[in-house]
Design a protein around this nucleic acid. Sequence first.
DNA 1: TGTACATCAGTGAACGCGCGTTCACTGATGTAC
DNA 2: TGTACATCAGTGAACGCGCGTTCACTGATGTAC
Lengths: 205, 205
Amino acid sequence: VAEPVKRAEQKERTRRAILDAALRLTAETGLAALSLRQVAKEVGIVPTAFYRHFDSIDALGLALVDESFGALRAMLRDVRRGGPAYDTIIDRSLEVLVEHVHAHQEHFRFIAREGAAGPPAVREAVLHQLELIDRELATDLAVITGGTWSHEDLLTLADLIVNSVVATAEAILAGRPEQEKELVERARRQLRMVLVGALNWRSQA
Amino acid sequence: VAEPVKRAEQKERTRRAILDAALRLTAETGLAALSLRQVAKEVGIVPTAFYRHFDSIDALGLALVDESFGALRAMLRDVRRGGPAYDTIIDRSLEVLVEHVHAHQEHFRFIAREGAAGPPAVREAVLHQLELIDRELATDLAVITGGTWSHEDLLTLADLIVNSVVATAEAILAGRPEQEKELVERARRQLRMVLVGALNWRSQA
DNA sequence: TGTACATCAGTGAACGCGCGTTCACTGATGTAC
DNA sequence: TGTACATCAGTGAACGCGCGTTCACTGATGTAC
């Protein structure tokens, strides 16, 4: 008594079309100003059909949060693939960042925008996911630093790095393409400053 | 033939009421989702009277950008008042930051929110103002570091500091009050890492 | 000081429009036998 | 395989509501003389 195939397929296709349309439309005005009717029109369905897929725009927003963090986590997996090779990690991470930021522009923009200004439920979901990523990075850093740092110190450093990288991604997306090289070079220097600073500061403490 | 006094006074009072109401109301949903009628209702005037003061919600938004950066610049003046006393500058700056963030919550939130998700004109105005502040900080840093750094290096460091501080302010405003001490302590360590790192990295370069 | 006129912040009715949501429906897809 | 029935994604009319904007207006404040 499994769900029939063809009908389910069509439903899934419409669901995808709704998610894609919403991601495209929110890029202009943000999720808070997005209407169900705009989405329906963009997809090519009647407004009421929206309810066959989502209870509300907020519910749609939460689905987009999941999807966007899927893209971000894929990026982090790519970064980790190289292992903790200490001397090349900054260059490699920035390469992966630039590649993913371009391939998933809309998802990155969505996270930045809705984390600052989304409807409360969406905003909270974004901030929660970012906190989880902070903690994951702290675990990675524990490996790189050889397990001698305290949990709190690792989180502090992870937070500093995540904030800088998020700011860099936002700047790349907001800026003109010809500024990109400059922004990446700046990020590279910043990460080096941070890494050198963390190690020196640590040995003084 | 100067503008008459009493009438102008009343007009200014209404203008202020509109700005205050808008700042209060946007805290919930963001400027993009704010309606002229909501503002008028909150102020206690008829919707059409809004046009006596602003051409559109966007124009009102730009006035709020000016006002919010007025608050931010007042903070920076307070920080600078202590002069470039190298060893206490981090502690003093964080004290001033915490004080101003609480006194002008709504303005800081406005900057963070509309810089990420405001209507295009407002968003651009916010990002432009932040860039100006980056450059001002770079000038301050030139004094602190004794004039031996390149312009580009100073901007890189300023950008790193501004991003961290903005992230800290956002975290304080988004978090629960009992987390504040922890967040400030984390910011303190981050700024020390950055300063130590910048100096060491610099001397290696 | 008193009067006649000008200014203009705020009013209130009206407009067409897009909004979210309800409801009964259609007809292709799927299931039971 | 063929038939009768069930499911359910998408339809289309209708609703009351808040929206931005227009327009002619009112009446207190201000100015000229």
